[in-house]
Design a protein around this nucleic acid. Structure first.
Lengths: 335, 335
DNA sequence: TTGTACGCGTTATCAG
DNA sequence: CTGATAACGCGTACAA
């Protein structure tokens, strides 16, 4: 038997600002000043302080800082647990940005919408800003940012529009001669999924094509089952538009098991374009989700939330996905 | 004495424990007691407090709590940015566990080992525990946990042993008749990669097979280039053992481009088994990285760090990966 | 330029 | 069981 974690004899004497002050022969205030860089400090004092900091390996306490300054040092982030793979691409960059702002990233994963609301509620007091995935309800506190929907009450159509992306995907496969297009979304309540459906239907209407409810498949946290239902139905489809790469990947896997060739018999487009997309076989055509631009906007928003500046949003600049053509779509006309 | 609350007219003020106390006609202390459940409180007082909390939508400030209680409410986590996809599988579960412990998860991504050290250093004072990926140096503070290597100085062989996993993978493909096995690792300095190499060499020795340096390929953050070098060399190999699923996936992609069939011409095994593994074509055989067990150990360790209990680790129970046989390995003998 | 004193929201301590 | 009061570590007017 091995004993781990007997830290009782190591008295956790974390050095305080007073220790530094004492060692540098100055007052607490001076130490604080050189660390925060607020006011001018005489050079020798500054050096003495810095040296003392070095010697003691002193780090100011985040907690005490936020408490004293009345301005939270935290940026909160609440994420759906099932979005883990996606949020992973966000996290490193957001973490970096947050560090640049001299703040700390506080993260909480949630399983459903209720937990999400609760988490946001419990966090938004403690944080300078809290960003969350998927559209926030309209009654959210002022300092919560919905990552993919920045729309403030005044300005509509900001943020990413899944309807537009779905439209692009539709038109793309339609241009390749496909007329029976299945749509792969999350579930009934998901706002993005609703938007996708909207764009999908609008394009169908434009092309005077009928809407077949059988071709609308909702993952509902069990993409395999949902896909099996589609495959087993005798509905005809030659193209699939998936909300996520993982859905597309699962579709590929299943189709392969049923000896349905991609893209010869069924073409697939995704609205994500994660690293996964290029690794699949065949490589996945995407309307790429514009993480970079969204991220930049998000960071700007955080910035503005921190220092009170109002957000500056260019009106015409809506964010749209880029088409990344790969091999998962075939041209029916050319066959 | 009754002080009328004239502080309510500023809209941005979040309710404090004093507000609750006033509304419930008790003292701060009582409020704190019912909220933390430390001491018994008369029923009517308790109810009054709870009601007041409800009315004001009061949430205790994390910062103030950690400051006052001298026991940090944070669990820190520092992660390599390039491990994003992997850490994503960890985060949700860890977040949940942390919530259960009534603590908050503080995350920081880093780009290299120096940043990692700095981050750990800056965090470990503020946090009850900080967990990090990849092996921590031996001189780490007592409250940092290396997720995949729990070994304290005294006890060897705790945590996950990549050498053992690599051995398993080797023996597996050797059993399938492969004799020329390439090894795909991160880089020279990575401890896990070193372990893999160790296991690899030991098995080779066991089978009296020569070690060919050409078959050792290091990704060095550019897996594609590294793989190309292997492919372009005229070294013979019929099997590849990859540290990560993404490496294996990239290998599959590249081999396909060069018209090398997997698994007919080259078999592949990975030491990870992420969701990606089953989605690839052909599905990827793995020595599965035991996230679940590691996670459980990690959480126990955090627990023990929090409440000072020393943790008991059963000596014989070393954590090993499970073989998940899929289609990416072929039996040469049977061909 | 520097130091003093106070406040931030909470928990711990001690007295009733 | 409850209530005052003292920490906790730090920022910051205000005074020197």
């Amino acid at each position: 038997m091995v004993l781990l974690g007997e830290n009782r004899h190591t008295e956790n004497t974390m050095p305080t600002i007073d220790d530094v002050a004492k060692l540098a022969n100055v007052s607490r205030a001076t130490v604080s000043r050189v660390l925060t860089g607020t006011r001018g400090v005489r050079d020798d004092s500054r050096e003495a302080v810095l040296k003392a900091v070095e010697v003691l390996d002193y780090r100011p306490s985040f907690a005490a800082q936020t408490l004293a300054s009345n301005t939270s040092g935290y940026i909160g982030m609440v994420l759906p647990a099932h979005e883990a793979s996606f949020s992973a691409t966000l996290l490193p960059r957001l973490s970096l940005a947050v560090k640049a702002l001299n703040k700390s990233l506080l993260i909480q994963y949630v399983n459903d919408e209720n937990e999400q609301k609760a988490a946001i509620h419990s966090l938004h007091h403690q944080c300078a800003a809290v960003v969350t995935l998927s559209h926030a309800s309209s009654d959210m506190p002022a300092n919560v940012i919905a990552f993919d929907a920045f729309s403030t009450k005044g300005s509509a159509n900001q943020g990413y529009n899944y309807a537009f992306a779905a439209e692009s995907a539709c038109r793309y496969v339609l241009g390749k001669g496909h007329r029976n297009i299945a749509l792969l979304v999350d579930n009934e309540d998901d706002v993005a999924s609703k938007q996708m459906l909207e764009g999908y239907r609008s394009v169908l209407q434009n092309y005077s094509l009928p809407f077949n409810r059988q071709l609308l498949v909702m993952a509902n946290n069990n993409i395999e089952q949902a896909l099996l239902k589609l495959i087993n139905s005798f509905t005809k489809y030659t193209a699939i538009i998936a909300k996520r790469d993982s859905y597309a990947a699962e579709a590929m896997r299943l189709l392969r098991e049923f000896n349905i060739a991609v893209p010869q018999e069924v073409s697939i487009v995704s609205l994500e374009d994660s690293p996964l997309a290029a690794l699949l076989y065949p490589p996945l055509t995407c309307i790429a989700y514009p993480v970079d631009q969204l991220l930049e906007q998000c960071i700007q928003r955080i910035q503005s939330l921190i220092d009170g500046h109002p957000v500056f949003v260019e009106e015409g600049k809506s964010i749209t996905g880029r088409l990344v053509a790969r091999a998962s779509v075939t041209d029916i006309n050319a066959m």
